[in-house]
């Protein structure tokens, strides 16, 4: 019984998390002492399958069918269901992408199995894998076990495994194209090509210093206080999603999985709890400062400097102190 890694691509281009998941798969196969298969699904995926076969995997599985030309939950869940039944893996790993959120629960449920979503770690014990998940918005972590027989389905969180730790193979692995029984009529939904609402007006990606506000700012009337600090530090103002959802700052200032990804020298998080969807957008910052009144806020797990306090006391003091230095 093997480990099966399900990669993700769109239009012939890899999703970057595919290789993080492959790293997780290589570690899992090593720990379980079993073969590793890497799967790619789509239409015309020969080149992508060749990319995978250069990695240290036992084999590459290609699901190649016109029905898989564009993503649909019906088409992909059915194709993967057929693949899982043919391959009979012990563990099936996905990257925790939006597409996997849309797909994997359906696939696992169609087989009457559990799907452990967004794991930050996997351990292997005699009875089976133990997955580490964030609960309560990251305030607590839990060891999660799955009851019943394999296959076990799980997805791995962005950044939990390193794509650059994927090991290349000594010789190209063989590619197996599976026979699938798919028909266009199985797909009940249709999708149009992706679009962007507004071209990013501010490119926060090149900012050196970012002062970012979260829901701790409490009221749009308080935004100027954060702006004053950003100005005093010579940085840009950014925000967590709820601030942009509320229209307190424009959408192009949102940091996170559905906004921009930044890696400034300094990221100052004011009243941001540190949910993973925010953290993936800023954890590449060189120095992270968090100001939060809750010592248990997950943002402190990744902060270099932490201030447990009311931001409305710290921010004016910082603006003042900065003025005195200059």
């Amino acid at each position: 019984m093997s480990v099966l890694v399900v990669t993700e691509q769109a239009g012939g281009k890899w999703h970057r998390m595919s290789f993080e998941c492959l790293a997780a798969g290589q570690a899992a196969a090593g720990a379980m002492g079993c073969p590793l298969a890497a799967l790619v699904a789509g239409s015309g995926v020969g080149d992508l399958a060749a990319d995978l076969s250069a990695k240290q995997v036992s084999e590459v599985i290609a699901l190649d069918d016109p029905v898989l030309g564009t993503y649909s939950p019906d088409g992909f869940a059915e194709a993967l269901r057929q693949a899982v039944e043919q391959i009979q893996p012990r563990l099936v790993l996905f990257p925790h992408t939006y597409q996997v959120r849309d797909l994997a629960p359906k696939l696992a449920a169609s087989l009457g199995r559990a799907f452990v979503s967004d794991a930050v770690g996997i351990r292997f014990e005699r009875d089976g894998p133990v997955f580490v998940r964030q609960l309560f918005q990251g305030k607590l972590h839990g060891d999660v076990v799955v009851d019943g027989p394999p296959p076990y389905f799980a997805s791995v969180q962005s950044g939990a495994f390193r794509a650059d730790s994927v090991v290349d193979g000594e010789a190209p692995a063989s590619v197996r194209f599976l026979d699938l029984a798919l028909a266009p009529s199985m797909v009940r939904t249709s999708s149009e090509p992706p679009f962007q609402d507004a071209k990013d007006a501010v490119d926060l990606g090149s900012a050196d210093i970012i002062v970012s506000v979260g829901r701790g700012i409490q009221d749009p009337a308080n935004i100027p206080q954060a702006q004053a600090l950003a100005t005093a530090l010579g940085g840009e103002l950014a925000a967590s999603r709820p601030i942009c959802d509320n229209g307190w700052l424009p959408l192009d200032r949102q940091i996170g999985s559905s906004g921009q990804t930044v890696s400034p020298n300094l990221y100052l998080a004011l009243g941001i709890s540190g949910a993973i969807q925010h953290v993936v957008g800023m954890k590449g910052a060189k120095t992270i400062v968090a100001v939060n009144k809750d010592r248990g806020a997950p943002i402190f797990e990744i902060a270099d400097y932490g201030v447990v306090a009311d931001l409305f006391e710290i921010v004016p003091a910082l603006v003042k102190a900065r003025g005195e230095v200059e």
Binding site: V146, D147, I302
Partner: peptide
């Protein structure tokens, strides 16, 4: 029951955070 939490715990720090303490003025400085 398909999946269940076996143990729940405080997350482990992934970075060594230095916490700054004192009055607002002191912390800012």
């Amino acid at each position: 029951v398909h999946q269940r939490v076996r143990s729940l715990y405080q997350p482990r720090q992934s970075k060594q955070t230095e916490f700054l303490e004192g009055s607002s003025q002191e912390v800012a400085a």
